[in-house]
Design a protein around this nucleic acid. Structure first.
Length: 509
RNA sequence: GAUCCCGUAGCUCAGCUGGCAGAGCACUUGACUUUUAAUCAAGGUGUCAUGGGUUCGAAUCCCAUCGGGAUCACCA
């Protein structure tokens, strides 16, 4: 243990010796928050120049002590609660029992440490320098802190000194990060608001929030490598879901007109600043709609999110050096037109071999297992994606890349699918869902062939899903949003770890 | 998975042409009844990530390992 930890344990024992419980059991009733008092405290000046305090004259607050400034027989502290920080002013004569100054001189000045949780009762006032503070008449220790917090100081110009910045420590000890870096709290509050706004919108649309299995016997609905686990009683292999799409569509088969799920997905793939092994998706499916309807819904929903998260209610977001405008309608570009626009290449009229030649010339990595559709996707990823800064719908994908999507109503070889790109990144993926069970079986069979060709991510046949479609699924449109990506976008973060409370880390020791 | 950078006090960091382990904040002791990066006086911080090597001597140079970050590859 370090010197400071030993000292804190000694303080703990001394408190007990004085008959003070450092971890009392009974609740402490809080009647006010720091931010409320700071923004709403009022006083009036009387004719004789004295002040008449108008509100918060009997308040109880609780939180952590984050700074102390001793001034002889007076003491200033900064108390931090979940709303912010407020200054406390304590006087020895007001916190002592007659001539016994033990509580002030020993407990408050010696045994109290930064980071301790305390509860105080008193009244709001303004100090000589004009700072709204709480004059403390009763003071109670609620929980003793045994480790020193990093001390982050902010000077009069707002410059931060000795910030707690090491990403490794911030992620491993997020509780410390959240305590000392209020700007990081804000990211998570915004994330929560993002999800709340989306949920409210979907509820208004009349969709039903549902939950579907995380442990799945077949990992369907996306192209990705799964985590595997084992159920002892059933003695069978199970997969952590890589997607929930096939389950949500079963619910549409079952007669729900619209369902949504905020779902943790698990993918056993690489980790970097935009990928965590577990991540959150919002998926929703609505009967009797198509992908064109879904584009309109997406525009409405994201515009509402942008306005809810921006301080002034505007639909624009500053991120990655751009001002992103989420008010619809967004640009709609077919995949082939997008490639033509940014490369001049007309992928529709060229052969697979010509595409291979183009990729070699442009140093785009390809392998023999790739078909024409995959080559087009590679070219798109290399040459187009990064240009799609403002929200853009990319529509009408080759059928081979989209085994769960309905064939295009008028364009042969394509499907009714769109992906939404913002800041060069995909944030949503939507289709008119394939509901023809015979076609769906053929698509799964094509996937099996891809698997035999060496594609590790090809989808597996799901007989029960086919059976469900055979009973009949209404025409349906569905979409999936990457919630972490959206959170990054709307909070201006470039690393997924900054929008996850507990990003995946290697073991510490 | 590959490449590069980083790891020194509780926190932020300096020290790296090899020669006694450093600063600010935090902490300890004392002064101060409206301070606020409080101030003033005095004081102690340590497995220099871990293990090995070179050397009279290693925080410093070399090798390996662990952890993190950035870039690339794969993916959402």
């Amino acid at each position: 243990m370090t010197e400071q930890e030993l000292l804190r344990r000694e303080s703990l024992q001394k408190l007990r010796d004085l008959g003070i419980d450092p971890y009392p059991a009974e609740m402490f009733e809080v009647t006010a928050q720091a931010a409320d008092i700071l923004s709403n405290y009022q006083e009036e000046e009387l004719e004789d120049g004295s002040k008449n305090r108008l509100n918060y004259q009997d308040v109880a607050l609780a939180g952590r002590i984050m700074a102390t400034r001793e001034a002889g027989k007076a003491l200033f502290m900064n108390l931090q609660d979940s709303s912010g920080r407020i200054q406390l002013y304590l006087r020895r004569d007001e916190l002592s029992d007659g001539e016994d100054f033990t509580f002030f001189d020993v407990v408050l000045k010696k045994l109290l440490d930064l980071g301790d949780y305390v509860g105080v009762q008193g009244y709001a006032f303004k100090t000589k320098t004009g700072e709204v503070s709480v004059r403390v008449l009763k003071f109670k220790i609620l929980s003793k802190s045994l480790r020193p917090l990093p001390i982050v100081k902010r000077d009069a110009e707002g410059n931060i000194h000795d910030a707690f910045t090491d990403p490794e420590q911030r992620y491993r000890m997020r509780y410390v990060d959240l305590t000392v870096n209020p700007e990081h709290r804000e990211i998570f509050i915004k994330r929560s608001k993002l999800i709340k706004t989306m949920r409210a919108y979907l509820d208004e649309l009349g969709l039903l929030e549902v939950e579907t299995p995380i442990l799945q016997p077949i990992h369907g609905g996306a192209a990705a490598r799964p985590f595997t686990t084992h159920h002892n009683t059933l003695d069978m292999k199970l997969y952590l879901r890589i997607a929930n799409e096939l389950y949500l569509k079963r619910l549409i088969v079952g007669g729900f007109d619209g369902v949504y799920e905020f779902a943790k997905m698990f993918r056993n793939e690489g980790m970097d600043r935009t990928h965590n092994p577990e991540f959150t998706a919002l998926e929703f499916y609505v009967a009797y709609k198509d992908y064109i309807w879904m584009m309109g819904i997406t525009e409405q929903m994201l515009e509402r999110v942008a306005r809810a998260l921006s301080p002034d209610g505007s639909a624009t977001v500053e991120a990655g050096g751009h001002t992103l405008d989420f008010s619809g309608p967004y640009t709609r570009l077919t995949m082939f037109d997008a490639i033509k626009k940014y490369t001049g290449l007309d992928v529709e009229s060229v052969s697979e071999n010509e595409l291979r030649a183009y990729c070699s010339k442009e140093h785009i990595e390809i392998d023999p297992s790739m078909g024409k559709a995959k080559l087009i996707d590679e070219i798109f990823g290399e040459k187009v994606e990064a240009h799609l800064i403002q929200p853009t719908f990319l529509i009408d994908y080759p059928v081979e890349m989209s085994p769960l999507t309905k064939k295009h109503r008028s364009k042969a070889g394509l499907v009714e699918r769109f992906e939404l790109f913002v800041l060069g990144k995909e944030v949503a993926n939507a289709y008119s869902e394939l509901n023809d069970p015979i076609d769906q079986r053929e698509r799964f069979e094509d996937q099996l062939q891809l698997a035999e060709r060496g594609d590790e991510e090809a989808m597996a046949m799901d007989e029960d899903f086919i059976r469900a479609l055979e009973y009949g699924m209404p025409p349906t449109s569905g979409i999936g949003f990457g919630i972490d990506r959206l959170a990054m976008l709307f909070t201006g973060q470039t690393s997924i770890q900054e929008v996850l409370f507990f990003p995946q880390m290697r073991p510490e020791h």
